[in-house]
């Protein structure tokens, strides 16, 4: 029971929870940028949490259904239209054969997640349907959806129409954002003044923000502790002899504009890094719009681990509320 793509939106990709286990071959985990939103959308329509759905950035697609289905849209606040009638988000909605799902203009957040009962059933590659365009993996022939595509949908019982996630369990998108950071990696290579400045300054999301990484600008350039450049690292003090790039790590090419690597990151390279956004805050980055003000906040490991446990507890409360 295919879903026809009438308009693809700006950049709409098929995503599930990604393909762990291949980073050593240069293939990142990928998958939904905002995992809690994808999991929740799937729960609402009666799917496994890790079923593949659509991740729409800024501008929603227009889709025509050829059979009745249950759908749910979570994440960014992107007005949901079924045959031009506005519908609630974070709610299981029935859509009938012949009806069209469309979207209004984005109100807040950046990425909406569309789950369809049965899940998008394109062929999994290396254990995942997630689109990784650079490696031509997953998605529709390794790419984002395009007008004229026919998306195969699996068989699914569908959720309970009208089931909804209470507002206090929805993750807010659009408020001024603090990203919690564990300093580390090559943090010792910048001066104490620069360390304080990084956390004191207000940064703004740059337009260069995508699934590989989010760039920020507006804060002061970093001052480096003097050192002798190792052979092979060039003359720029922000270059290192090629090292590992963890997810969430903050690299600062030229010492000027921090880039937080996200789920489609490369695994290594020659830019130095000053720390890592904690894993519990990675979903939040996927909902940041360009020009949005962001502050980086220093935390310790105990706080980071507690935040991660809190995020797992939130997911459990959502499961409980939806009786799953």
């Amino acid at each position: 029971m295919p879903v026809k793509v009438i308009k693809p939106g700006l950049l709409t990709t098929i995503q599930d929870l990604g393909r762990p286990g291949y980073f050593h071959l240069g293939i990142p985990i990928g998958g939904a940028m905002d995992r809690v939103s994808l999991r929740t959308a799937n729960l609402l329509v009666g799917n496994d949490e890790g079923a593949a759905g659509l991740e729409a950035v800024f501008l929603g697609p227009e889709l025509e259904f050829t059979e009745d289905a249950t759908i749910a849209v979570t994440g960014a606040d992107l007005p949901i239209l079924i045959d031009d009638v506005e519908q609630p988000g974070w709610t299981a909605l029935k859509i009938k054969a012949g009806q069209r799902l469309g979207f209004g203009y984005l109100k807040s957040g950046a990425r909406a997640y569309i789950a369809i009962s049965g899940g998008v059933d394109t062929p999994p590659m290396l254990g995942s349907r997630s689109t990784y365009a650079i490696g031509a993996l997953g998605g529709v022939d390794g790419r984002a959806i395009a007008a004229g595509d026919s998306l195969p949908i699996g068989a699914g019982a569908g959720g309970t129409e009208g089931a909804t996630v209470a507002p206090d369990l929805r993750r807010a998108t659009g408020s001024p954002v603090e990203l919690r950071v564990l300093p580390g990696l090559y943090w010792h290579r910048i001066t104490e003044t620069a360390q304080r400045g990084f956390f004191d300054d207000e940064w703004k999301v740059a337009p260069e923000a995508d699934r590989m990484g989010y760039r920020f600008r507006g804060g002061k350039a970093l001052e480096f502790v003097e050192r002798e450049q190792p052979f092979g690292a060039g003359s720029d003090p922000s270059n290192i002899v090629d090292g590992c790039y963890p997810y969430g790590s903050i690299q600062v090419p030229g010492g000027t504009e921090p880039i937080v690597l996200h789920r489609d990151a490369v695994s290594g390279g020659g830019y130095f890094m000053i720390g890592t956004v904690i894993s519990a805050d990675m979903d939040l980055i996927g909902q940041l719009q360009p020009h949005m003000p962001v502050r980086f906040v220093e935390v310790d490991m105990e706080t980071a681990l507690k935040a991660r446990a809190d995020r797992a507890a939130l997911m459990n409360r959502i499961r409980g509320a939806l009786d799953r």
Binding site: G184, L185, P246, Y247, G248, S249, V277, I278, M301, L305
Partner: peptide, 12 residues
């Protein structure tokens, strides 16, 4: 060991 968040570490 290079500390790199709560979900990874690096041995250099």
């Amino acid at each position: 060991f290079l500390p790199c968040g709560d979900a990874a570490l690096i041995v250099e």
